[in-house]
Design a protein around this nucleic acid. Sequence first.
RNA 1: GGAGAGAUGGCCGAGUGGUCGAAGGCGCACGCCUGGAAAGUGUGUAAUCGUCAAAAGCGGUUCAUGGGUUCGAAUCCCAUUCUCUCCGCCA
Length: 423
Amino acid sequence: MIQLSILRNDPKAIIEKLALKNFNASDPVDKILKCDEDRRIVQKTLDDNYAESNKIAKAIGEYYKTGKVQEANQLKETTVSLKENAKNLEEQLKNLEANLNSLLVQLPNPPHSSIKPGKTPEDNEIVYSEGEIPALPETAMPHWDLASKYNIIDFELGNKITGAGFPVYKGKGAKLQRALINFFLDNAIEAGFTEIQPPLMVNEASAYGTGQLPDKDGQMYFAQIDNLYLIPTAEVPVTNIYRDVILKEKDFPIKNVAYSSCFRREAGSYGKDVRGLNRLHQFDKVEIVEIQHPDKSYETLEEMRQYVCGLLRKLELPFRVLKLCGGDMSFTSALTYDMEVYSAAQKRWLEVSSVSNFESYQANRMKLRYKTDDGKINFAHTLNGSALALPRIVASLLENNQTEKGILIPKALVKYTGFDVID
RNA sequence: GGAGAGAUGGCCGAGUGGUCGAAGGCGCACGCCUGGAAAGUGUGUAAUCGUCAAAAGCGGUUCAUGGGUUCGAAUCCCAUUCUCUCCGCCA
């Protein structure tokens, strides 16, 4: 969430930046400033009230000690109105604070100064591309057909056991999944990330901390009986490790990597976008999460981007990097790169990674801070990225590498799969 | 799931109604000591809100969370959450 002090200092700048995300903030910002002002007035009055009460209480204590019971009893009467007043003010303050918070939480993260306006994915800027788009014969199959031809992914079986969007991986398909997970984890560890195995369910505070709540309520599976959410990404539990934590400057950068299954309701998705592996309710992903000093977070973002590109290169997939326009960015991000691979039979680009800098937006929500050497406390910056999400990688591997002899496994993966062709 | 015990600062731990944001220890930081280190020794060491341009200062809040009793609560009462022990169940 946006820091109130920043908003107070320059509300206009925030409104202008949020307009890039096609978010009209002038009305909520007005409300916030008004609410904040009221809050401070009430707070001051209440503080004075408390100060007075404290004084009286101490005086009564003194009287009792010296045996002046009468004086004490007299003083007691003066506290009646103070107490009543305090009760009133407390109520007001509570309401104002709740109100203020709920307003603040509804403001998206203002985008980085380099972000261009835009409304749709077409407005995203292609900042890099690499690799040859393979020329497949007419008879080339999309991955869902290949999956059943080689009996490696069974969508129908998933329907039976659970429902649409929960495929079953079998034989070499299952092994390929495992190989990719290990490949991604090993690469990350080599690059200095610490492996984390997080819980797959989180409580409300965690979902709120990374910004899934309240914005994306309804996109997460929710176990009502225990009040727990199935994670949509490992970002949620891993970043929340640092909720309510005050780091030291020397702790930076914190680099974590986690493999997890991810669960998304994807309410409202339909059509060919969701065919096969393109969009699932449950999928596997290796996620990298970094906590960094504010001065270095954009440096880190570039490193993360390069790191992800390196993975795609090793997998020999044609890919491109998009810098998202304001309108296509997520609620919580300040700058996002999307990595897309080309899936040659579908003839379309598939997003396989999204690398973002959230600056202090998540940190403010979850009170993730650091102490400078001279004792000041600031919010840290949080970043994360997929490295990588499996299903669409599998989709493009299957489609791009299909040959008459079968599906060829990229060299870098063979030591993980133990086979070099799916036939 | 049943019975019991508990939750205090970065950690351990004292504190059963007033002067307690909280003894003591550990840790940490800085200094002294030392050729250097260890040991020893001295000092300091929570967060948050408000006031202020800012700092200092001042005022408020915080001893799991939320309510209550009281002039006054870490301390008493109630609820919730979590942890531990025992029993039950179980990968």
